[in-house]
Design a protein around this nucleic acid. Structure first.
Length: 712
DNA sequence: ACGGTTTCGACC
DNA sequence: TGGTCGAAA
């Protein structure tokens, strides 16, 4: 709910910039022959020509509207050009638009604090720039004002018929007797006009903008004159603007609150709202919302422009409307894999480009249950710590789904056999990654990995001082871990029918694949346990783009003793690059591997990590890793696995992890650590200087919780 | 069958 | 305080 924020008395200059039919513009830039033609971007062409998600202004003249179907658009505008949203992995791929949005943001952020409000909208706080301009080069002295600025719409500026509009604007901007607020806005006009011209020049995109003293008014204004125009809201025109404005047009009042205002309070315009005493509004809507309403009725909004150029989360989702609902676990897993693949890719880009890592994975779904009293029950969202690596994300997301499904279907519907109707359907699925924090680069950086930015499961890793220098590298497994192999893995409590129609059409050789995966997983599993996993771990041959580890190979755990002895066998083996890729500590970070669904590991960590040194703790998947390239070569992609793996292990999050002496880390990997971390490590190993293959580093171990990954 | 995202406040 | 949910854009 909206919360009242007192607006400081110091006037701000806020702009809201809104790209004009952005997706259309992106497509028109790709295909310039579409420029000037009635065009719409459409997604999913199969049903009635797909849904329009962006409509060019040329097409709007024909009455084409967003959320028409492509077919309807053709009816009212037969010559309309329908461009499909790119599709990847069977779903809409918005990356092109995201990236185009980034181009714009990078330009718009030049003159002041910039908040990326959506894929095609930003807020700018231009107060400082405006104040500076006012002090150094006030518009009053300008004899030449850019035409783009002169085309501004200034609310309340009465353009008597016959008067030269641009000349009026020039006068308004140049006014000597204007108050400070208007002078600031005049500077805002010039700055925004220039920014918009830069956007056009550098990206070929047009945008519209609103310029006002707060975000609310700026947003309101940006939509008033489109496309490719800007609108200014001087303080003196606020009341006139708001008085007759339908209440639902206000940001935050487009939904239930706005409806309630209308139906419960008889408020249809902001002017109506203005009449209400603050107390009355608070009575009805609570202190905060009441005050907020009272304020916005007066054009008062203290919301700050957050300096945020990057999204706070990433998500990938898809709907499966009506008859396309997913009715089997394997089909859900198939789509989950697609979504996770996209998510993982975006997380990797974010890591590469922005040096940030997400720490929480969340699964959302919508479902219906046909025959049940509480068929309106919502499918529960579930989240867990996010581990980097496509395969891991897929695995964890699937576990989250299964956990959610069991909760959703409840005690009944436990078991269905064969291809009979399972009684439920998934109508939308999405995975998202949140809690994105920068990977630290300051001093004490490693400690920060544990304390500052890591998710709570790290909280038990109090400090590196507690790590036992003398302890054998210790396998960190919860005591109760069992050894699951594919053949003896416990059946899920909910046994789902074998997939019928849909999945077999889509994934023809699923069964074959399944058996293949099974056999290979067994041998790989063996490999994973008996061969040096560390080389592949540390060699950097795996990366976050790599993925699709077979599901069967996950959650295969061994008991602690087994692990320890196997580790000892391996101990002393040189950690070595396999030669298939460049060692990269960054790749390790990318696969940073927090505990997935529980905290037993971190507790274990606490127990075993006592002493002075640090150690590198590596969670891994005991299996071979096929690089993406390899997989592509084989022409194989991940296949759903028919829900045959254990679901028992969900939730307790057992997982393999290794603690390494620093000696066992491929020293070349060190080179790629951030300098600060290198320095830290060097400090630890004092008095010995860091050198490759240094063996005299007793008691000095890096501590972190990595996982194996592959490098693309 | 208004799609895919993203953010934010409420609530527990 | 964090997870989950719903509203809103």
């Amino acid at each position: 709910m909206p919360v009242a924020k007192p607006e400081s008395s110091d006037p701000r200059v806020i702009a809201h910039v809104d790209m004009d039919c952005f997706y259309v513009q992106v497509e028109q830039r790709k295909q310039p022959q579409l420029r000037g033609l009635p065009t719409a971007v459409v997604q999913y062409n199969e049903w009635k020509g797909g849904a329009l998600i962006a409509v060019s202004y040329e097409a709007r003249k024909f009455g084409v509207k967003r959320s028409m179907r492509g077919a309807e658009a053709k009816e009212v505008c037969p010559q309309i050009q329908l461009v499909q949203v790119p599709v990847a992995r069977g779903k809409a791929d918005l990356n092109g638009y995201r990236n185009a949005g980034s181009e714009v943001v990078s330009i718009l952020s030049r003159r002041g604090r910039c908040e990326r409000a959506s894929i095609d909208e930003v807020y700018l706080d231009l107060t400082n720039a405006a104040e500076t301009m006012l002090a150094e080069n006030p518009p009053q002295n300008l004899e030449k004002i850019d035409d783009e600025a002169l085309k501004s719409h200034i609310l309340g500026l009465n353009n008597e018929d016959g008067s030269d509009v641009k000349e009026n604007v020039r006068e308004w901007i140049n006014r000597h007797n204007a108050d400070h607020r208007d002078k600031l806005l005049a500077c805002g006009i010039l700055i925004v006009a220039e920014l918009r011209m830069q956007v056009l020049k550098e990206t070929e995109f047009t945008c519209s903008a609103g310029i006002a003293h707060n975000k609310m008014l700026a947003k309101l204004a940006s939509g008033m004159n489109k496309p490719a125009q800007q609108t200014v809201v001087p303080s003196s025109s606020v009341n006139g603007l708001l008085n007759t404005l339908p209440i639902r047009k206000m940001k935050q009042l487009g939904g239930k609150l706005g409806i309630s205002l209308q139906t419960d309070m008889g408020v249809n315009t902001v002017g109506d709202l203005f009449q209400f005493p603050e107390e009355k509004l608070q009575e009805r809507y609570g202190i905060n919302t009441g005050s907020w309403l009272w304020n916005i009725a007066r054009g008062i909004s203290g919301e700050a422009v957050e300096g945020r150029l990057l999204p706070k989360s990433h998500g990938s989702g898809k709907t499966f409307p009506g008859p396309r609902a997913l009715k089997t676990v394997p089909s859900v897993q198939h789509w989950l894999n697609q979504l996770c693949e996209e998510l993982s890719e975006r997380l990797c880009s974010d890591l590469d480009q922005n040096k940030r890592m997400a720490h929480t994975l969340t699964l959302h779904a919508r479902a219906y249950k046909s025959s049940d009293s509480d068929s309106q029950k919502k499918f529960p969202s579930k989240s867990c710590p996010l581990r980097y690596g496509t395969g891991k994300i897929q695995e964890d997301a699937f576990n989250l789904f299964q956990a959610g499904l069991r909760e959703y279907i409840g005690f009944y519907g436990v078991k269905t056999q064969g291809s009979q109707y399972s009684g439920w359907g998934i109508t939308s699925l999405s995975v998202s990654a949140s809690k994105i924090v920068p990977i630290p680069s300051g001093t004490c950086s490693i400690a920060k990995y544990f304390h500052g930015q890591s998710t709570p499961h790290f909280s038990s890793m109090q400090s590196l001082d507690n790590v036992n220098a003398n302890a054998e590298a210790t396998l960190l497994l919860p005591p109760g871990s069992e050894c699951y192999t594919e053949v003896n893995s416990p059946k899920a409590e909910v046994d789902f029918p074998k997939e019928e129609s849909w999945i077999e059409d889509t994934v023809p050789d699923l069964d074959l694949q399944e058996h293949k995966d099974l056999s290979s997983s067994l041998s790989k599993t063996q490999d994973g346990f008996t061969q040096d996993i560390s080389p592949s771990l540390l060699s950097g041959t795996e990366g976050c783009l790599e993925q699709n580890q077979n599901k069967q190979e996950r959650y295969i755990t061994k008991d602690e003793g087994q692990f320890k002895s196997e580790y000892k066998e391996r101990k002393g083996k040189r950690v070595k690059d396999k030669g298939t890729g460049t060692p990269s500590i960054l790749e390790l970070f990318k696969s940073y591997n927090p505990h997935p669904l529980g905290s037993s590991l971190s507790q274990e960590l606490k127990k075993t990590a006592q002493g002075t040194g640090a150690r590198l703790i590596i969670g891994f998947e005991p299996k071979g890793h096929n690089s993406l390239a390899e997989q592509n070569e084989v022409g194989k992609e991940e296949k759903p696995m028919h829900g045959r793996r254990s679901s028992r292990d969900e939730g307790d999050g057992r997982r393999e992890a290794w603690s390494y002496n620093i000696d066992e880390i491929d020293p070349t990997v060190m080179d790629e650590l951030p300098q600060e971390i290198q320095d830290e490590i060097k400090a630890w190993v004092q008095p010995h200087k860091w050198r490759p293959n240094n063996t005299a580093r007793r008691g000095c171990k890096i501590s972190h919780y990595f996982s194996p990954t592959k490098k693309s």
